[in-house]
Design a binder for these strands. Structure first.
Lengths: 190, 190
DNA sequence: CTGTCTATCGTTAGCCG
DNA sequence: ACGGCTAACGATAGACA
């Protein structure tokens, strides 16, 4: 008799579901992008959960492979407070050395990307005068409409910064803000 | 016949393993601490994986419930690069060198502008005394000793800052640095 | 690129040593 | 507090829409 698979050949799943992968640089560009999205979401979700569960302050900063900036958390609280309280002082010494080393590395590409990141951050900071790159305290995001569950989240104000720019120029990315992303409280989906 | 449970009553697992919890502030203080540790590790691991898989720059900053500071990632690249390189104004010499390298990339113009912008920002930052919370450039961490596996990680330079402070005051936590944490490359265990 | 689905893989809550 | 254990739970690779 016909086996199930033979009965419905078009129905056989080509995907066995998740497969194990080893943690190494993804080569397939398309895959990389998808994975980045998914995992970034996951990371932010984890960050949120940690913050809620433990009452911790959490901030996450991520540059995508394409140098897009994503961030989670009340960075101004977490990082800002630290900074304002007097961080370790700057030493201007390492600069030339660093640059030198970089050049010797002949990894211009990588360097370029770094510069882009720097530029991004710089621009953001410039625009916001060192204050929240997520633009505002969450209060303005209209949480009030949120139910009890969301209330918890206010504690963990979260926001996205998406700095886009023309791929060549990369000038000053205007910090686009995503007010909120759906069913936060329950699903913690981003 | 005696059921298995009855046969070995002392062996019956009191724990059904993981149980579902809802994401809300943990009340039990002991639990909270344990959960924080576990989940912080998990978060950092995720962050590392994201960075490796996708070639993304990731930085995470966490204040524990007790206001201890933990951080993951090449914060100096992600956020601090502009501090260490840009903030500390690149001297014209190193700048030109850098730019030179960039020219080979055919994007010198943009880069130069960026550097200039950074320089501008630098002064601003200097005035505001906003500098690296991450204390130093990673160079001091002795990555070079890392083997191939770790090589991947170099890209993702990682650092821990552990700053403790009186729970009430929260003043300026002194950034204690943990150079590296064990079997990073394979297990990604923290 | 964002979402859905599924089988699987990886994380972790609760316990105990 | 740390580490180990185990079963459940939650995240996600891959394929598709």
């Amino acid at each position: 008799m016909a086996s199930i698979e033979e009965t419905k050949p078009h129905n056989k799943r080509t995907s066995q579901g998740r497969r194990k992968i080893d943690i190494k640089k993804l080569e397939k560009k398309s895959n990389k992008q998808v994975t980045f999205s998914k995992r970034r979401s996951g990371l932010f979700k984890k960050a949120a959960e940690l913050g809620i569960l433990c009452g911790a302050e959490v901030a996450v900063i991520v540059f995508s492979p394409n140098n897009k900036l994503f961030s989670f958390g009340n960075v101004d609280d977490v990082a800002g407070s630290y900074l304002n309280n007097g961080a370790v002082v700057p030493s201007s010494s390492s600069t030339s050395t660093l640059v030198k080393g970089m050049i010797e590395l002949e990894e211009a590409e990588e360097k370029k990307r770094q510069l882009e990141r720097q530029a991004t951050l710089a621009s953001i900071l410039e625009n916001n005068n060192i204050n929240s790159w997520w633009e505002k305290p969450v209060e303005e995001m209209g949480y009030e409409e949120c139910d009890n569950h969301l209330a918890t989240l206010i504690n963990i104000r979260n926001k996205f910064s998406d700095a886009s720019s023309s791929s060549t120029d990369f000038d000053v990315p205007k910090t686009k803000t995503m007010p909120f992303c759906g069913d936060w409280s329950l699903g913690l989906n981003f």
